[in-house]
Design a protein around this nucleic acid. Structure first.
Length: 557
RNA sequence: UGCCCCAUAGUCUAAUGGUAGGACAACUGCCUCUGGAGCAGCUGGUUGAGGUUCGAAUCCUUGUGGGGCAGCCA
C-alpha cells in the first residue's frame, strides 16, 4: 500500500474518523459481502478496495462474507472465483471468511423473537396479492388479512414452515411495520420465504430462507461490523436496516453507509448484461479480455496495482457519475511501464534487405530489457541481412513530419544500425513488398560515429530467427461511450463493436519471446503492452493486447 | 406527480464559513536510441434565484436538472 493511494479523505473516512475520536468505535470493522451468483468485476473492485483499504488504513478488520441467502441463484463455482479474484487484487481476510448461511440458525431464532414480540406474522397471500396490497409509489398499501394472528399461532406455523410442511410460495414470514409508510421497504416486508432449492452450502437442511434486508443487517451485527458499506440503491433500505438492528438489545448496531457504484465509459457493468454477453457468445467467456470482470482484466494483462491505484484515484462519493476508461488505462500504462519487458515484435511485416550486409552472417546485439528499470538487465537479439519491419514504418510517399523509413531517408533500427532506403520493390498491384536498404556498419548499437542524427527509430526482427506468434488485438467492446444509456426501443447489444477483436496471425517476434510464461507482461516496442495469454505454449505463443502505448503521431495525423 | 438521495472544469474528485486544488483528458513547448517514458507550461469549474454572514462551493429557503424505490432478488 503506497502512501499516494490515500491522499484525501472521503465522506466515509470522515465518519470513521469521527467515530474513533468520539470513542464510539475505537477500532473499525468492515466487510465485503458478495453474493456468489456471478463473477466479480471492476465495480466490485472499487468496493473491495474501499472496504479492505479502510480496514488497513485505520487499523481495523475486514471480513469476507458470501451473501448466500438465495439458493436458486448461488453456486460454489462463484465462491471460488470470488476468493481467487480478491486474493489476486491483493487483499486478505485472514480467518474471517463467512457465509450468511452460517447464521441461518441464529437468524431463525431472532425471527422467532420477532414473532413472540408481535412484530412478525405468517402471511398466506399469494405473490400477486402481496404485490397488490403493497400499494404503489404514490398510494399506501393495505394490511394483510393475516396480520393479526396470535404470536402462538404464528410461531407454530413458522416452525411447520421450517419443517417443510408447506409448498413453495404458499406462506411467508412478514415483519409488522407500517403498510402506509411512504417508504415501500417499510410496508411489512417479507423476511422469510419457502424454497426447496438445494443450497450450495447447507444442501437441503433448510426450506425457508431469510431475505436480504433481514439477513444482511443481522449478519453484520453478528460479525460486529461497525461500518456496513453498500451502494446507493440501498439508501431507502437503511430505515429497515436500523429497524431490525434496534429490535435486538443483545446485538451491536452497525451503521449502513451508501456510496455511488462505479461506472466506466464504453463499459457495461450489470451482472445481468455481463451474463448475457457470455451466454450469447458475444464474448468468449467470463474471462474474455474484453470483459470488465476481474478475471477478464487479469487475462487482458491489467495488474492489481493498476486497479488499486485507479480505485484510489476515482475516490468515493454519493454522486452517481461515469469515470473515463482512459483513467483506468493510464494506471495500467503507468504500472506496466515500470514492469514490462521490452521486446521487438512486428505485427504486419515488411521485408527489408540490407544489401551491404553479408548473406549468412548473424550478429547478436545487446538490447536493454527495460529502460525504466536497470535491474531488468539486457538480452541478445539477432541481426542479419534479411529483416522485417512494420508496414506502417515505411511510406513511399510520406506525409509531412513523417519520421520513419521512406525513399532515400535514413532511420535507426532499435539497438542495431542506421539504415538508408535505396530501393522499393513493388508487385503488380503496386503494393510495396520489399525495401532494399544499406546499413552503416559504423552505427552498431544504434549510434553513428560521426554523431549525425536520425528522426526515427523502428523496431524490427531478423527474418530467419524470428518466431511466429499469435497476437490478439483487443479494443473497446462497445462503440458508445455510455452503452447502458441507450435510446428507448434499442438494445445495448446493438452498440457492440464488431471489431473488438482482431487476430494477427502474421506477427513475428524476436526469439526471446518464445520463452514467455502465461501472464508475463511485455511491451512490444513502440506499440503497446501485451501479456502472454493463458493458452500460450512455446510452440504457439499467444499474446493479448493489454493497452496501446500513447501515440503522438497518429494523433497528429 | 409519493418518499429518499445527488449537483465543483470534458471526466472523477478535494476544499469541513476564510486564496477553488489534484488526477485523467486536451493543448503548447522541451527532451529522447520507443512519435513511448520524462519535464515544463497553458486552457477550462462552484446548477439558477433569494437569504444568513465582515466573508458562502460550504449554512437556510426555493426553483431546475439527474439518480433510486412498487422481487417470495441482492
Amino acid at each position: 500500500m503506497t502512501q499516494q493511494e490515500y491522499v484525501n479523505t472521503n465522506f466515509i473516512e470522515d465518519i470513521i474518523i469521527e467515530d474513533r475520536e468520539s470513542g464510539k468505535h475505537p477500532s473499525i470493522h468492515t466487510r465485503f459481502p458478495p453474493e456468489p451468483n456471478g463473477y466479480l468485476h471492476i465495480g466490485h473492485a472499487k468496493s473491495i478496495c474501499l472496504n479492505f483499504g479502510l480496514a488497513q488504513k485505520y487499523n481495523g478488520l475486514c471480513n469476507l462474507r458470501m451473501d448466500d441467502t438465495n439458493p436458486s441463484k448461488e453456486d460454489e463455482e462463484y465462491v471460488q472465483s470470488i476468493i481467487n479474484d480478491i486474493k489476486w487484487l491483493g487483499f486478505d481476510w485472514d480467518e474471517r471468511f463467512f457465509f450468511a448461511s452460517d447464521y441461518f440458525e441464529e437468524l431463525y431464532k431472532y425471527a422467532c423473537q420477532l414473532i413472540e414480540k408481535g412484530l412478525a406474522y405468517v402471511c398466506e397471500l399469494t405473490p400477486e396479492e402481496v404485490r397488490k396490497s403493497r400499494g404503489t409509489l404514490t398510494e399506501s398499501g393495505t394490511n394483510s388479512p393475516f396480520r393479526n394472528r396470535t404470536a402462538q399461532e404464528n410461531l407454530a406455523i413458522f416452525h411447520r414452515m421450517r419443517a417443510g410442511e408447506y409448498p413453495e410460495g404458499s406462506k411467508t414470514l412478514r415483519v409488522k411495520i407500517d403498510m402506509t409508510s411512504p417508504n415501500i421497504n417499510m410496508r411489512d416486508p417479507i423476511i422469510y420465504r419457502i424454497s426447496y432449492a438445494t443450497h450450495h452450502k447447507t444442501g437441503n437442511t433448510w426450506c425457508i430462507y431469510p431475505m436480504y434486508d433481514y439477513a444482511h443487517c443481522i449478519s453484520d451485527a453478528l460479525e460486529h461490523i461497525t461500518h456496513s458499506i453498500c451502494t446507493l440503491e440501498f439508501e431507502d433500505h437503511r430505515p429497515l436496516y436500523d429497524w431490525f438492528v434496534n429490535q435486538f438489545t443483545d446485538l451491536p448496531k452497525p451503521r449502513q453507509i451508501e456510496f455511488a457504484r462505479l461506472n466506466i465509459t464504453y463499459t457495461v457493468m450489470s451482472k445481468r448484461k455481463l451474463l448475457e454477453l457470455v451466454k450469447g457468445n458475444y464474448v468468449n467467456g467470463w474471462d474474455d479480455p474484453r470483459m470488465p470482470t476481474l478475471c477478464g482484466m487479469r487475462r487482458r494483462g491489467y495488474t492489481p496495482q493498476a486497479i488499486r491505484n485507479f480505485a484510489a484515484q476515482i475516490g468515493v462519493a454519493k454522486f452517481n457519475g461515469i469515470s473515463d476508461l482512459e483513467l483506468l488505462e493510464h494506471f495500467v500504462r503507468e504500472d506496466l511501464n515500470k514492469k514490462a519487458t521490452r521486446v521487438n515484435v512486428v505485427l504486419n511485416p515488411l521485408k527489408v534487405t540490407i544489401e551491404n550486409f553479408p548473406e549468412d552472417e548473424v550478429l547478436w546485439l545487446d538490447a536493454e530489457n527495460n529502460p525504466e528499470d536497470e535491474t531488468a538487465g539486457i538480452r541478445q537479439i539477432p541481426f542479419s541481412k534479411h529483416i522485417l519491419i512494420e508496414q506502417d514504418d515505411f511510406s513511399e510517399n510520406p506525409p509531412p513530419k513523417y519520421f520513419r523509413l521512406s525513399p532515400s531517408k535514413e532511420i535507426r533500427l532499435k539497438h542495431a544500425f542506421y539504415i538508408t532506403c535505396k530501393e522499393v520493390i513493388k508487385n503488380s498491384d503496386n503494393t510495396v513488398v520489399e525495401v532494399i536498404c544499406t546499413y552503416d556498419p559504423e552505427s552498431k548499437g544504434g549510434w553513428a560515429k560521426d554523431g549525425r542524427k536520425v528522426l526515427g527509430t523502428s523496431h524490427w526482427v531478423s527474418e530467419k530467427e524470428a518466431i511466429p506468434i499469435e497476437v490478439r488485438q483487443y479494443t473497446k467492446l462497445f462503440l458508445d461511450k455510455e452503452p447502458e444509456n441507450v435510446v428507448p426501443g434499442t438494445d445495448y447489444k446493438d452498440g457492440i463493436n464488431k471489431d473488438s477483436l482482431a487476430i494477427m496471425n502474421n506477427a513475428l517476434a524476436e526469439p526471446s519471446v518464445a520463452k514467455a510464461a502465461a501472464g508475463q507482461a511485455f511491451q512490444f516496442l513502440r506499440q503497446g503492452y501485451y501479456v502472454a495469454d493463458i493458452d500460450t505454449t512455446e510452440s504457439k505463443p499467444i499474446f493479448n493486447l493489454t493497452v496501446k502505448l500513447k501515440d503522438g503521431w497518429t494523433k497528429k495525423k
